[in-house]
């Protein structure tokens, strides 16, 4: 029987309430949203916060909407909401691709985008999606809001840019008209963490790659991406040869660790092959050749 260590529990009524509670217990308190990453860690005693702040009543943080030239996603938006969103489906198929393979439908009813990013698991799928899209993350504190690039958000396994008395409140993704995007994951069984995953978006100007973003997870890719591959593709022809060369750079740049999910060379192979596939699909979608 897995039982968390004892803790105090508070249910927050507003973001300000969360920030007040965090300030009262610096370093001791953790925010819980869906709880499907944090509670398993607590059951295994890998995490032992002395206080949990439940933010499930903050339903005003559950939204996906256009805000200027960006899509704004509230921190309490659940995986199921990301999967079913027509707005995200229209602009970024990468979310639908990824959400279909994140955990299972029941877990997706609980887990949130804010919780997933703040858990900062090295195999987290949404971290790769946010990195691929060069999203930004809005962090709120008692003194105001600040914005951090998704690629600077993760500072190591289970470590983020969110300070002790701060809270992630929103994820923002630039709208890129005409962009195609895609996500692919290899997992040992349905709903598992990734052996490796890759995500991409591609924006075309004729047959030239105007802009591109790559995301990689579970393969030790710095900042969940491969900037070498992105730089190699930008301004180049959207050809199979160029895509294959960029995928090889992903293979070379990642730093996977052998574990129960596979040896290092297999994970490097997956980084290359999945990068090639998501870039190819993104190009096809940008051209309107594939739904």
């Amino acid at each position: 029987m897995q039982v968390p260590a004892p803790f105090d529990y508070e249910r927050a009524t507003s973001v300000d309430h969360v920030l007040t509670l965090l300030a009262e217990r610096p370093g001791d308190a953790r925010i819980v949203a869906g709880g499907h990453s944090l509670l398993p860690m607590m059951k295994l005693r890998l995490a032992q916060p002395e206080m949990l702040i439940d933010i499930n009543d903050l339903t005003d943080l559950d939204y996906i909407r256009v805000d200027g030239d960006e899509i704004a996603i509230g921190a309490m938006t659940r995986h199921a909401g990301l999967l079913s969103s027509a707005l995200l489906g229209e602009h970024y198929r990468i979310f639908r691709d990824a959400e279909r393979v994140i955990a299972d439908p029941i877990v997706r009813n609980r887990g949130t985008i804010g919780g997933s990013l703040c858990q900062a698991d090295p195999s987290e799928d949404l971290s790769a999606v946010a990195s691929a899209l060069r999203a930004t993350v809005v962090i709120q504190s008692a003194t105001g809001r600040r914005t951090v690039d998704a690629r600077d958000f993760h500072q190591g396994p289970y470590e983020t840019a969110v300070g002790d008395a701060e809270m992630l409140v929103e994820v923002r993704v630039p709208i890129r008209p005409g962009a195609g995007s895609a996500y692919e994951k290899v997992e040992r069984r349905a709903g598992d963490w990734a052996v490796a995953s890759a995500g991409a978006f591609v924006q075309l100007d004729g047959d030239t790659i105007k802009d591109v973003g790559l995301g990689l997870t579970a393969v030790g890719a710095p900042h969940f991406t491969c900037v070498e591959a992105e730089e190699a593709l930008r301004g180049q022809a959207a050809s199979a040869e160029n895509v294959a060369a960029a995928a090889q750079l992903c293979h070379d740049a990642c730093q996977p660790q052998a574990d129960q999910r596979g040896p290092e060379d297999y994970k490097r192979h997956l980084a290359r092959e999945l990068s090639r596939r998501v870039l190819t699909t993104s190009i096809a979608r940008a051209r309107g050749e594939q739904s």
Partner: peptide, 15 residues
């Protein structure tokens, strides 16, 4: 009214 896994939900969260 939403299916959840009750082994990964605290009872206090259901209050």
């Amino acid at each position: 009214d939403v299916p959840v896994k009750s082994c990964t939900t605290l009872a206090v969260m259901a209050s």
